[in-house]
């Protein structure tokens, strides 16, 4: 499926950018006239993915976070959040609800569970020492014509 529109951005893994990232993505998606609930779902998933980069991928360091958003046919939105941080050794374990490697930071261990519950599809690819790419997809209730 070819993208009808696309946006990419990169920014530093500072926690102050978590709000910027979810608002920028939601501003791009607004052209599809999503419902408030759909927009909230996307903002939440982006926030979880970016927080993972800040807290885990680049723990105690600052690195770059890359986000790519594609709008495809039938109001399907595909969002990629990529880092070049530490990577995840055991993806299955990392995706278990309540599993966290940062309990001292009061992380609930729900990041991936939230992404899976709020999005239609979630895919995680990671290489230890190379980085992680999280891709998620959601089809919006198309209320306006495409284009």
């Amino acid at each position: 499926m070819k993208a009808q529109n696309e946006m990419s951005m990169s920014f530093e893994s500072r926690s102050s950018n978590e709000g910027f990232a979810r608002c920028a993505v939601s501003a791009f998606i607004t052209q599809l006239d999503p419902t408030i609930s759909e927009l909230n779902d996307i903002k939440t998933a982006v926030s979880e993915a970016v927080t993972n980069c800040v807290v885990h991928a680049y723990r105690n360091t600052i690195g770059k976070i890359y986000i790519n958003v594609k709008i495809k046919e039938n109001s399907v939105v595909v969002i990629k959040v990529r880092d070049t941080g530490c990577g995840i050794g055991d993806i299955k374990q990392a995706m278990q609800p309540l599993f966290t490697t940062a309990p001292s930071d009061e992380r609930a261990g729900l990041g991936f569970a939230v992404m899976q519950s709020f999005m239609d599809k979630v895919n995680v690819r990671s290489k230890v020492g190379k980085g992680t790419t999280v891709t998620f997809e959601k089809r919006l209730s198309c209320r306006v014509g495409n284009g």
Binding site: K43, T44, S47, E48, T51, D105, E106, R107, A108, V114
Partner: peptide, 10 residues
């Protein structure tokens, strides 16, 4: 106005 899973941790 918005809360991600950090709110649950809180």
């Amino acid at each position: 106005s918005f809360m991600d899973s950090s709110g649950i941790g809180l």
